[in-house]
Design a protein around this nucleic acid. Sequence first.
DNA 1: TCCTTATTAGTAATGATTACTATTAAGAGT
DNA 2: ACTCTTAATAGTAATCATTACTAATAAGGA
Lengths: 123, 123
Amino acid sequence: MQKKLILDIINNSYEHYTAREIYDYCKRLSPNISLGTVYRNLNILEENFLITRIKMPNSIDRYDKVEKKHAHFICIKCNKITDLEEFDENYCNKFKKVNNYKVLNYEINFKGICNNCVEKEYQ
Amino acid sequence: MQKKLILDIINNSYEHYTAREIYDYCKRLSPNISLGTVYRNLNILEENFLITRIKMPNSIDRYDKVEKKHAHFICIKCNKITDLEEFDENYCNKFKKVNNYKVLNYEINFKGICNNCVEKEYQ
DNA sequence: TCCTTATTAGTAATGATTACTATTAAGAGT
DNA sequence: ACTCTTAATAGTAATCATTACTAATAAGGA
């Protein structure tokens, strides 16, 4: 089952991989896997809220595990994603009641310039 | 100047247009405008924080004005975007101080099923 | 008027994602 | 074990939103 392979890769990493990166990773373990299979399963996993898609400001989508809900800080210079743990499950769950909409998921993304890139600016 | 035309269309509407929709709109007022020009200016406007890009869960990007900062509720069934005014500037600005990152923009997106689509589910 | 730079229209190219199809795997029921 | 039905897959082709490119035009300063 390729779906479990893909889910495990995402769940067992602290990186935020692209579909292509997940595909490359899968190929080491299951050399015949197809890129279409990766995309199909990523979509299914997301629809079932087993993974989260991160829409990047200037680049292609990346994927994240859903456990330990958190917010992201995304650097618009280097595209690095930083997990913001202080926006944890307790904090974020406050958002779940919005008007009377049926909220299934939510994302909080900050965009700016990371400390590393700020330093470079003044050199 | 096509840039001002594009900015005005976004600022003077309550819709959240796609690039193609903005292009169609522009053509009525400036028939020779090119789709490439629309994309280029949308990117420039976003880089200067004069508009906001909304990354849709299952579809292409849409654009929003930046005035009156608010959160979005996006229906995963019909893709309708609802502005959540209760997450207004005062509320959202609390988020601006995150660790010591230089936050330039942020987005709060809720995803779920809108009341209209929930009703359809039970029919 | 000359020069430099910015913007544009039009089109071509890119590339991430999806669609498609024939094949294989999985599972349920006898 | 065997048949039937359904689901998942590999491989490839097609799509289409976005970007890149180029020659032409516009803008603006000295």
